[in-house]
Nucleic acid binder design. Structure first.
Lengths: 346, 346
DNA sequence: GTGAAAGCGCTAACAC
DNA sequence: GTGTTAGCGCTTTCAC
């Protein structure tokens, strides 16, 4: 264990000596405590500037104050989905003088609760969770610790958690309805990872739209795509090998839609001529794939931003009532959908 | 300032009491210090397990130990380029029991040095820097503090810094040569942000290839694309308005290449029929844009991974000699390049 | 309003 | 090998 060769940094004590006050006064100034006379406050400020004082977040955290850091718990960093949310978080954070600690679970449940343990020790002041794997296991812990947190894109289970979600069901409904109105009758669905509520809700939206338009729900037309590109590819493979091939595919997210597009082409079929395809999320790739993907836009950046804003509120004011924010999705029509070849029959 | 309602966590002292040893012994066990008798070590381990002890990183850091956290200093999170490197870092970190602290400068130089100040206070054990803006200003500070760090994708300025880079010059040379061999004579270059060494080196590679093949260097054919999509778009606009239009464009990165593709199409030109285009990086979008982009692949994930591995080495062994790792680039041929229409003349 | 002093949980000398 | 103890830099009572 190599010993740290840390040069002594300027501490609160140096500042106190320079300003000729006790060091608790310096602490008060640093923390904007109003009980300091104006002239002293000024003197301290000058001393801080002169010495180039920077608070030590470690010491602050340890002593029970704010570390000025929030944590972000995610499954992985691979997806554009997470990247976009992260973008929003980061942007918002910049205006709050907070830093970000990244906790990646790499899809292992055990890691989630393990992290939560460390977290509540003062290293971070609050926690953002994107699409948690198994929240039941530890949201309770967070609440008991009165630890500020906000969940992004997860609902169900738990009605007490502050959450930012989007209108998954309605978005899926609209996407499916769009295909129906184009004249499609055999519409397949590439589902997301089971037991994520967004996946479940999108499936619900799909079924609801079918039902509303008196179309039968055929379980054979639903394949899991695991929310990723390879998953979408394989799901589409199966769907396209069906005796009665679907004329349109609705994928539960863009990543699996893009995988599905590969599969469609590898079957020698054209998009949207032979098969229409629609996704969900509107990640950057979707506008640039070929043909540009029609999709349900989820305001990911805003979701990250708003979740962060909520968290900041809860940190500043622990008594603040916890909210649940629902963001609107929006159908973005590009070029991957067309009426089916047999549309005339409709 | 809301006071933290922190429930008392299990500390080293609780473990010591449970195991009936002094708490420095517990500390030794936690830190794998060999000077502990096996039976006591075992007893401590059991006590830790029983009580569910988790070390407090704050206290460890403060007391001069390792916080088990490394920092990552980046300009922004917007780009696939950074996202890919981050991916590699994250993957490698997972095998090391280290966590990641994210510092985003949002392109403001002042923030960079401000961060460095806080960093050297023990919050993190080491620092990774991606494409630093103004390293001269603080790499010296880091060195003086003997603070472990690794720079990704930056060279020049500074010969003492451990670095991971790729063969920018050679990659650009090969890309340009590829276009030349296809028969192109008027090859434009969309440059990256000035004063980043990778941008400079890619320009060098481009010039060197022209020279090697006895083609004149025409400054009018070089436009800055700022390494991003809008930048690439505007640069291409200018290039395509030139009296003698280039038949091929080499963009200093994929993001600007994709922007350029938009511009080419908006001029009513086809790719690669009228204009060939080649990029640099090989981000995910490149394989999925239309037509799929020929590009110079830079092993971004590996660069992140290797940089992290180096950093881990330096943290564990401060005396370890600092290295400079150069990663090979590779030409990835897809469908955005073809011989010029007038190739017969060549 | 302000200072003194007691921790926060831990590492690393230092004794034995 | 193992225990004792002095900090690390700060927040927060508690007196005055």
């Amino acid at each position: 264990m190599a010993s740290r060769n840390r040069k002594r940094n300027v501490t609160i004590i140096d500042v106190a000596r320079e300003a000729n006050v006790s060091y608790s006064t310096v602490s008060r100034v640093v923390n904007n405590n109003p009980h300091v006379r104006e002239d002293k406050r000024e003197r301290v400020r000058e001393a801080m500037a002169k010495l180039g004082y920077v608070a030590n977040p470690l010491a602050r955290g340890l002593a029970g104050g704010q570390a000025q850091v929030i944590g972000l718990l995610v499954r992985d960093l691979v997806t554009e989905y997470v990247a976009q949310i992260l973008l929003g978080i980061d942007e918002e954070l910049a205006t709050h003088q907070y830093d970000l600690m990244l906790y990646t679970t790499h899809h292992r449940r055990a890691k989630e609760s393990q992290y939560i343990q460390t977290l509540t020790q003062g290293f971070i002041d609050g926690l953002l969770l994107i699409l948690p794997l198994d929240p039941g296991a530890y949201l309770e812990t967070l609440r008991r610790h009165q630890f500020p947190y906000v969940v992004i894109d997860h609902q169900g289970f738990d009605d007490f958690s502050p959450t930012v979600v989007s209108t998954n069901t309605r978005g899926a409904y609209e996407a499916t309805e769009y295909l129906i109105k184009l004249g499609h009758r055999r519409i397949a669905f590439i589902a997301g990872s089971e037991n994520t509520s967004s996946a479940i809700e999108r499936l619900e939206g799909y079924r609801a739209a079918l039902q509303a338009h008196d179309l039968p729900f055929d379980p054979a037309l639903v394949q899991s795509g695991e929310f990723d590109q390879p998953g979408g590819f394989h799901a589409a493979q199966k769907l396209l090998s069906l005796p009665e091939r679907p004329t349109a595919i609705f994928a539960a997210n863009d990543a699996s839609a893009i995988g599905a597009m590969d599969a469609i082409r590898s079957h020698g079929l054209s998009i949207p001529g032979d098969v229409s395809i629609i996704g969900f999320d509107d990640i950057r790739q979707s506008a640039y794939c070929y043909p540009p993907l029609t999709t349900v836009r989820q305001p990911l950046i805003d979701m990250g931003r708003i979740a962060t804003r909520l968290l900041m509120t809860y940190i500043a004011n622990p008594a603040h009532p916890r909210e649940r924010v629902v963001m609107n999705t929006e159908l973005v029509i590009r070029e991957s959908c067309a009426p089916p070849r047999s549309a005339g029959q409709a």
